[in-house]
């Protein structure tokens, strides 16, 4: 694997906790790589297996569900 490999990470974040935490991280000017993309969901329990599989099909290298 090339040393320049930067994995594309998708994060499904619950509006009420993890997304709020990401918001706070922004307000605190904390940095995270631009290859991390956040999708806000009303509840992490809303995330279906098929949505995670679709993300992988479309090329993400890793995925987190945070809530």
């Amino acid at each position: 694997m090339e040393s320049s490999f930067e994995p594309k990470i998708l994060a499904f974040c619950c509006r009420h906790c993890a997304y709020a935490a990401a918001d706070l991280a922004g307000a605190m000017r904390l940095r995270y790589p631009p290859s991390i993309r956040i999708v806000e969901v009303p509840c992490s329990g809303r995330v279906e297996v098929v949505e995670m599989l679709h993300a992988f099909e479309r090329g993400v290298d890793g995925l987190m569900v945070a809530g």
Binding site: V49, V50, L53, H54, F56, E57
Partner: peptide
């Protein structure tokens, strides 16, 4: 949906 995705990948 899950199986179709798995087959594609």
């Amino acid at each position: 949906g899950i199986l179709a995705s798995a087959l594609r990948m």
